[in-house]
């Protein structure tokens, strides 16, 4: 019923909540939502509500990058957020979300990981980016990516005394030098949609998430859903995504 209604409206170029096809819902970015985390942010996009918290832990650098800290991203679809989310190990979708968020941050070189090395080969900061979904009404990728970058931007490095992390004192801000923004474009019939609600994304033929940096470069992509895309579709989706990313970046 609802699906048919969405299709019917789309034929007229309209959406179920009255938005234009390329219009975001109301977005609130609330940095420092979790006082006890090293960095955090809550993003509310319409009815979608996500919190990202940053924790820094002492770890061992990877052997092939002995002088760099590491980035570790996780996402949990906590069962509070939707009737279909069940307790248990991360689902396929949760894992995809974590990896897409991770890729946007990692590939943009937004964190200067070489500044997070403490002792070469031995000790470096692990930066944990944890996505926690509070309410799911679509577009988790964009909301989580935005919250992640916002959280990284206010994250601080705790003081280190010998081997003890002093979490009440900080030696400085986490070195974050870029603001990658991910905007997902959904395709239904021949319409391109921005910021889908859950009802809308459930009937997407296809979707493409594109992460872009300030200079306009693309740093990560992810295609989703079952239908293929033409080259011209991809071009159009990237163009729209890049344009809309500028709007989101202003919120940081």
């Amino acid at each position: 019923m609802r699906t048919n209604y969405i299709f019917k409206l789309l034929e007229k170029g309209e959406r179920i909540d009255g938005r234009k096809l390329d219009e975001f819902r109301e977005i609130k970015v609330l940095p420092n939502a979790i006082e006890r985390a090293e960095g955090s942010s809550r993003v509310i996009m319409g009815k979608t509500d996500v919190i990202v918290g940053i924790k820094l832990e002492i770890g061992v650098p990877f052997p092939d990058m002995p002088n760099m800290g590491t980035l570790k991203t996780g996402a949990e679809f906590s069962p509070i957020a939707h009737k279909d989310f069940e307790p248990g190990p991360p689902s396929e979708d949760a894992t995809e979300l974590a990896r897409v968020v991770d890729r946007g941050i990692r590939e943009s070189d937004c964190i200067e990981l070489e500044k997070l090395c403490i002792t070469e080969k031995e000790k470096a900061w692990d930066v944990y980016v944890d996505v926690h979904i509070i309410n799911h009404d679509g577009n988790l990728i964009d909301a989580s990516s935005l919250a992640a970058v916002s959280a990284l931007l206010n994250a601080r490095i705790p003081k280190l005394e010998d081997k003890t992390v002093i979490r009440t004192e900080f030696t400085g801000k986490l070195p974050v030098v870029k603001k990658p923004i991910t905007v997902t474009i959904g395709k239904i019939m021949n319409n391109f949609l921005v910021d889908p609600t859950k009802d809308e994304e459930d009937i997407f033929d296809s979707r493409l998430s594109v992460a872009t940096i300030e200079d306009g470069k693309i740093c990560a992509m992810q295609k989703g859903n079952k239908t293929g895309l033409k080259e011209s579709d991809v071009e159009e989706m990237i163009k729209l995504s890049t344009k809309k990313a500028k709007e989101l970046r202003k919120l940081l």
Partner: peptide, 14 residues
């Protein structure tokens, strides 16, 4: 459930 970032030392999910 405790969110990973809810305490000083990160809680492993699960």
């Amino acid at each position: 459930n405790m969110a990973p970032f809810s305490v000083d030392e990160r809680v492993r999910p699960g």
